Simulated assay, not measured.
Amino acid sequence: MGAASLSANAGSLISSTEYLDYQLPEKIQKICTERDNCPDIEVKYLKSNHSWIDNTVNARIDALVVNSKPSESGARVVKTPDDVKEALDEFVASQFAEVPADSVFVYSLMITPEYLGHVNDLELFEINSYVFTGGAHGMPYSEYLIFDQQTKKPIQLADMLQPNKKSRFNALAYSAYKEWVKTVDEDVANYEKSWPFTLSDNVTLTDQGIDIRYQHYSIGPYAYGMPVLSIPYSQLQGIIKPQFLPARLSNKYDS
């Protein structure tokens, strides 16, 4: 993904991260130290000079923590900070309930936010996570977040589209999907039978256009990673609202 273009006031956001202060329960620490296979927990929170952005990003990180292992009862909701510690305690304890004592594998949970840059009044972030609970591989995850400095609200794909333009955006994304498929398979039609196109709303802005991120297994097998479909701004004029175009293009669009 190309770095987002930065305007003169981009420096108004100062972004860093800080680690969650989490210690393994004493009983777990004793067992895993003896076995030399302690679970690996690394959770970071956003720490910037905009608390309203921090609150939204970090709430999403907490939600990823408490749902780091699938539950038959559905998604868990974070109500207090204790819910996060409790979920982590359950996560690390599960290794010793589910993995043989002589296993060299350890459960891992890593979550970190990243500042991607700035387009107009929009601040762009990405949350990356990785969960490993045994098996052939772990499960990475990536989620984009966009914040409007003027309204102090998060922005979704639906907010970016002009009225009645979703079908046109979908068509552009589908074209980008077919171009991506050509990089991994010679027969697009046959590939699509196994991995059909779906429109993801996991999007961000770059200096070139809109990137659409897909998770593992969404439009391809695990080996193909987390594909990103890119739609250039030159194709998006008249489809997304002018305020979501870089200044050089929105001014041209308005004229």
Rank of each mutant, 00 (worst) to 15 (best):
I239S: 03
T151S: 13
V203W: 09
Q237G: 08
R168P: 00
A171T: 08
M160E: 04
F147K: 07
F147C: 08
Y217H: 06
L236R: 05
Y144I: 03
F125E: 12
F197T: 08
V104E: 09
A247W: 05
N251A: 15
L199T: 01
E123Q: 14
N190W: 01
S142E: 04
I219C: 00
T112R: 15
Y130E: 08
G2M: 00
I14L: 15
E86W: 00
E86I: 01
C38S: 02
P113A: 12
Y222F: 14
S255N: 13
Q237F: 03
E34M: 06
F125P: 00
L124D: 10
T112G: 15
D201F: 10
Q237H: 12
P232T: 05
T151F: 11
D102P: 07
L64T: 04
G74D: 02
V65A: 12
L109K: 09
D36G: 10
T151A: 09
R35E: 04
N164M: 11
P39K: 11
I28C: 01
K85V: 00
P113E: 06
S5M: 03
E192D: 13
H137M: 08
A59P: 03
D254C: 05
V228K: 11
V131Q: 09
N170I: 01
Y22T: 02
G135Q: 12
E26R: 10
V77H: 09
V131L: 08
I28D: 00
S108K: 14
D201Y: 14
P242Q: 09
Y253N: 08
P227L: 00
S194I: 05
L13S: 11
T133G: 04
P154D: 06
S15A: 13
A158F: 00
P113Y: 05
A87P: 02
G117N: 11
I239K: 07
A189Q: 09
A173V: 04
S48H: 05
V106W: 11
E126S: 14
N67F: 12
H137T: 12
E90V: 02
D148K: 14
I231S: 04
D201A: 15
M226H: 10
N67V: 02
N9P: 00
F244G: 01
V65S: 06
Q208D: 13
L109D: 12
F96L: 07
S94G: 04
Y107E: 03
D159E: 03
D201T: 11
E114M: 14
W52L: 03
N37K: 10
L172G: 05
Q215A: 10
Q162K: 06
F125M: 12
V66C: 01
F91H: 10
S218N: 13
Q95G: 11
V65Y: 07
N67Q: 08
T151I: 00
D121Q: 15
Q235K: 15
Y45I: 04
F147G: 06
P246V: 02
A75M: 09
C32M: 03
